[in-house]
Design a protein around this nucleic acid. Structure first.
Lengths: 242, 242
DNA sequence: GACTGGTAAATTGGATCCAATATCCAGGCA
DNA sequence: TGCCTGGATATTGGATCCAATTTACCAGTC
């Protein structure tokens, strides 16, 4: 992981073009992560959010280390970070497990989204560009054509984040994305079980229209309803099989 | 730290009362932290929020380990958790530092609070008891008598959390408390520099009154204004010495 | 047959050890 | 003189090792 040479060339005629190409090449080839811990943390977060590591799954440090081809230590540090994000739970001396999902937790996340997302949208909306709106429209179209639940969640997340992106509040946006992802974990169930798809798409269209019109109040109202009703539907679904 | 016996009694007549007492006794006597990592994490978080470890301070793992009387490993895990909470920043191979504070970050936190706190209050307000309101009033009174900025922040945080506590959304409340604490870090400057004290207390009184009256809209309006104007004042202060 | 007690295996938490990287400073070269 | 190069040092990132705790299993007893 860290013993790769940094691709530092000994080429001694540094034309600007060459340097630029080089930077691109380095950027691409640079192992996406500078430390093993970062790598493991990102991979595990994705695995949990994607459902590859299902809720309740025990996380044996030794096994994970072997799977990632590293020692236990980066795994431990990554698990600690994920714990702080409420994606895994530690039980002292008994190990970590992927955080369980529940109707209560779903409602909790829904309440947080319903509070944060309109705030982000209100800040972002005045600064949205035509390109942003075009991209959002494109993402809606892609969702229409998409069947795979995993890709679906990804597109949904990108659609929402595109509309919030100009808020210029990194911390707020990070929180929003975090809970959007967390909600994805829950929605994964629902996508296959219930066909909540068409209605959701209607709301996406309405939201985009309100954004185009620059109508913050309307847009926020749609977002809140969108989030709330998704949460309720999901809570009902989870309750029905708790 | 972890070699204390678990106080498991061999008493073989388990009356319910005895069991309950036992649970209390165990809970009280159980070392507050079960692992060194938990201990270090809690202590460091407090130290950062209290300002004992000021913004920008380098966090040498060896020194911290010595200070806590443990090895570097629990320190490393604790630092990772604090990184996920945005309280420290890692620079690969260069070490960790206490997260810097800035006017932008202050505004960011203000926006988050302004979104989350009214949501928490709205959920909590219908379930507030007379005791809750009495406690809140008491905390306001204590704030009047308090001069120390540290204790002040603590009281302010408890006052707000008392009003939100009945929201019944653990995740939401954790987020609220986290950002209330983060704001404290910033307010510490202000308390001594500017005398924003009296006005803030007026707002606290007004907020409590609205809660007593069960007027959610009014209470939320006050909270939002309270947070926003504290944020603005602070941003201005920080900008003025950027 | 169920429960207590004790022992053994598995797994985590913590400490130590090694490698890799960044910083700092001296020295050579244009 | 100024900049780049190279090595020494400090500090982190990662691996290995040991101890402590939990769990499972099995024997013995009521």
């Amino acid at each position: 992981m860290s013993q790769l040479p940094d691709a530092r060339p000994s080429d001694s005629r540094p034309s600007d073009a060459r340097l630029a190409d080089l930077a691109v090449l380095i950027a691409r080839n640079r192992p996406r992560f500078r430390t093993a811990t970062e790598f493991v943390e990102a991979a595990m977060r994705e695995a949990i959010l994607e459902g590859v590591l299902p809720a309740g799954a025990p996380l044996r440090q030794e096994d994970l280390a072997a799977a990632f081809g590293v020692s236990r230590m980066p795994v431990r540090e990554a698990l600690r970070q994920l714990e702080a994000r409420a994606l895994v739970e530690f039980h002292p001396h008994r190990g970590a497990v992927v955080a369980e999902i529940s109707a209560e937790d779903s409602a909790d996340i829904g309440a947080i989204r319903a509070a944060l997302e309109p705030a982000a949208l209100r800040l972002s909306l005045p600064h949205l560009t035509a390109d942003d709106l075009a991209l959002a429209a494109e993402l809606i179209a892609e969702m229409d054509a998409e069947a795979d639940p995993g890709r679906m969640g990804e597109l949904n997340r990108r659609f929402h984040m595109t509309l919030y992106a100009r808020a210029g509040r990194p911390r707020l946006l990070a929180l929003v994305e975090q809970h959007l992802s967390a909600a994805d974990r829950y929605l994964r169930f629902q996508f296959s079980a219930l066909g909540y798809h068409p209605r959701s798409q209607d709301e996406h269209h309405a939201l985009l229209a309100a954004c185009r019109a620059g109508d913050a109040d309307a847009a926020c109202g749609i977002v809140v309803r969108h989030v709330i009703q998704a949460g309720e539907q999901l809570s009902a679904f989870l309750d029905g099989r708790g």
